[in-house]
């Protein structure tokens, strides 16, 4: 299943929000007592006009529905922002936006 995400960019800042359980594989289900299997985003990358400005590696310690923002030098209106992500099960997500 594709990883759902959104990206917004403007005023020198890129913000990414994903919908993902981010299970670290340590938590037990309160009802069954069974360990919930690990399911988290491992890799996330952001490119501006095709140039990678951020290549991130995440562990299960990133919160559910991961959020990331950072500032990039020289970001301007009209720049094309591309975000790619992949989780530990091989699910992928990709989204594009234009900086405002």
């Amino acid at each position: 299943m594709a990883i759902a995400m959104r990206v917004r960019a403007g005023s020198g800042e890129i913000k990414v929000l994903m919908t993902h359980p981010s299970e670290n594989g340590l938590r037990k289900d309160a009802k069954t007592g069974q360990v919930v299997p690990a399911h988290f985003v491992k890799n996330v990358s952001v490119a501006v006009n095709g140039k990678t400005v951020m290549a991130g590696e995440w562990g299960g310690g990133v919160s559910k529905d991961p959020y990331l923002s950072f500032k990039v030098k020289g970001l301007k209106a009209g720049d094309k922002i591309t975000v790619n992500a992949e989780d530990n099960t091989g699910d992928k997500g990709s989204v594009e936006a234009t900086a405002s």
Partner: peptide, 23 residues
Amino acid sequence: NANPLIAQYQLTDFDGMLSTRMK
């Protein structure tokens, strides 16, 4: 944390601020 490393980012043209949400 049980696994202390949360995130690692390689950055280009970084402008001084990065934020995220962690457990």
